[in-house]
Each structure stands twice: as structure tokens, then as C-alpha cells.
């Protein structure tokens, strides 16, 4: 089998005296959705920020396509095809869909000695990509603020895919969304997987994870509690692992199984 798209080996991250990550190993293969679960404070955010080059690991190694890499900035990760979509920071609401879509990678054309953004081209591509994912953008000049939360996440993912990402890191893409919008995002994650990209899906919602995940890794207090494939684990077991076991099971019973 080919080398995983990303392999993280015994990653440790210390912030001063705080040990945020204490030896986490993790792999993502092409064409799979690997869910990273964990409660608040488990170290999910720190871990994905390490993967996407925002933080530098204190200890441990990282391989992309089997090659050892050392990311210094988020730019390095992006250049290697690792794109991260952050929950609240996916898009800038005041700016138009096109301006957001091409932010930082604006297509340009020369007019004499001057270089301008090629807006007709940018609008065309944006419209085309939006219709591909089933979002009807009437006017690519409309502000992203007029789109729904689910649409914004989907546009952000589509942007990463369009610009050639091999691995998508999705930081809680569904946690702020309603039912229909969640299903829209999950459906799109599935589409992306079928195209052969690797997806790291961070969530604390077991049901969202079970809906699209191929493998599941649970983080707790900076350590992995193990990785399981879809066949090996039930939602209840995942939920228990995430919460660190017993207490929640008891609570769940008193609440009639709604947690």
C-alpha cells in the first residue's frame, strides 16, 4: 500500500509548562475520512494546528507522502496540499463570493505595464464551481454574509479542493449548523472523499462522525485513546471514549439517552 498522505508520529506539543499533546500518532490515507474526536480541551485544535503548520511540534515527526517535513508556517502546509478550513474563519462575510474564493490566489492579467485581477475569469470560475456543489450563486458579487452557514463551509471546502488540496482538515465544520445545513456539508465531505482526497474531520459530535467517517481517533487529555475503523466500533463506544467513560453513561441514562 502507498504511503499515507500524512503521517504524524509521536507528536508532542508543550506550551511552557503545559503539555497540550503528549505523543499523538495519526495517519490519513487518500480517499478516506478520518475523524478526530475529543471533548473540549482534549488537544484537537492544537493537533490540527500542528498538522497545518500553525504550531511547530515540540517533539515528533511528520511525513507527507512518506517524506519527512518540517513546517515553519501555514504557507508551507498549503504548498504541500494540506488545506485547513476553520469553523468561524472560513470566509470573510463582508466580501463577495468571488473575492473570498480567490483570496490570496487572485488570477491576474496584464494591461500594459499594470497587473489587474481578472474578474471576469474569476467570476466565471466561481459560478462554475458553485454550481458544481449545488449552490446557486445568482451574482458572484454578492457578499458571503448573504450565504447560510452551511453554504459558507461548503464554499470554503470547494475553494480548497479547487486549488488542489490533497488533504483537507475540517475544524468542526458542522458544530454551528442546523440540520439541513449539516447534511449539506456532510454530503459534500463524502463527495470530496470519492474524488480521492484525504479528509481529517474534527468534531465532537459522534453522529456526524459516524455519518461519514471511515476511521475514528479519539483524543483525550493530549493522548490518543486509539484508532478504530468503522466496523470495529459503535457510536455508544465512541461517545464513552470521548467523554472519558462512566460519568456520561450514567448521566445519559438520567437524561433518557439524549446526550
Amino acid at each position: 500500500m502507498a504511503a499515507p498522505l500524512i503521517e504524524m508520529r509521536d507528536i508532542e506539543k508543550h506550551f511552557g509548562s503545559v503539555i497540550a499533546l503528549n505523543g499523538v500518532s495519526f495517519t490519513v490515507n487518500a480517499g478516506e475520512v478520518h475523524c478526530l474526536l475529543g471533548d473540549n480541551g482534549a488537544g484537537k485544535s492544537t493537533f490540527i494546528k500542528t498538522m497545518s503548520g500553525v504550531h511547530k511540534a515540540t517533539k515528533g515527526e511528520m511525513f507527507v507522502d512518506g517524506d519527512l517535513v518540517h513546517f515553519v508556517s501555514a504557507r508551507d502546509a498549503i504548498d504541500k496540499g494540506i488545506a485547513t478550513v476553520y469553523q468561524d474563519l472560513a470566509m470573510i462575510p463582508l466580501m463577495s463570493v468571488t473575492r473570498n474564493f480567490f483570496m490570496g490566489r487572485e488570477p491576474t492579467r496584464w494591461v500594459g505595464p499594470l497587473r489587474f485581477v481578472n474578474f471576469s475569469e474569476a467570476h466565471r470560475i466561481t459560478k462554475e464551481q458553485m454550481s458544481k456543489i449545488g449552490i446557486d450563486v445568482r451574482d458572484p458579487n454578492q457578499a458571503v454574509g448573504t450565504l447560510s452557514g452551511g453554504e459558507r463551509q461548503t464554499v470554503a471546502i470547494a475553494r480548497a479542493v479547487y486549488f488542489g488540496a490533497k488533504v483537507l482538515i475540517l475544524d468542526e465544520p458542522t458544530s454551528a449548523l442546523g440540520v439541513r445545513q449539516t447534511s449539506m456539508v456532510l454530503k459534500y465531505i463524502d463527495m470530496v472523499r470519492k474524488r480521492g482526497l484525504g479528509v481529517v474531520f474534527i468534531t465532537h459530535n459522534v453522529r456526524h462522525a459516524m455519518a461519514v467517517g471511515d476511521r475514528f481517533t479519539v483524543l483525550n487529555r493530549g493522548q490518543t485513546l486509539g484508532t478504530a475503523t468503522r466496523a470495529e466500533i459503535t457510536p455508544e463506544e465512541l461517545q464513552d471514549l470521548m467523554a472519558g467513560g462512566k460519568e456520561l453513561a450514567v448521566l445519559s441514562e438520567t437524561l433518557g439517552g439524549t446526550v
Binding site: 501555514a74 504557507r75 498549503i78 485547513t84 476553520y86 474563519l89 472560513a90 470566509m91 470573510i92 462575510p93 463582508l94 466580501m95 473575492r99 480567490f102 483570496m103 490570496g104 490566489r105 487572485e106 491576474t108 497587473r115 489587474f116 485581477v117 474578474f119
Partner: peptide, 24 residues
């Protein structure tokens, strides 16, 4: 309104953190 840099000006003011994440 017409240049790459202009788009970055909007982005920096719209949400600096988002802009940084996309490489602005």
C-alpha cells in the same frame, strides 16, 4: 477594486485571521 493587493486590503480589514490562513 481592481488589483490583488486591493483584495488583500479588504481581507485584512474584514477578518485578519481568516486572511492570514489563506496566505494574505
Amino acid at each position: 477594486t481592481r488589483t490583488k493587493f486591493g483584495n488583500w486590503i479588504f481581507a485584512s480589514g474584514g477578518d485578519a485571521q481568516s486572511a492570514r490562513y489563506t496566505g494574505v
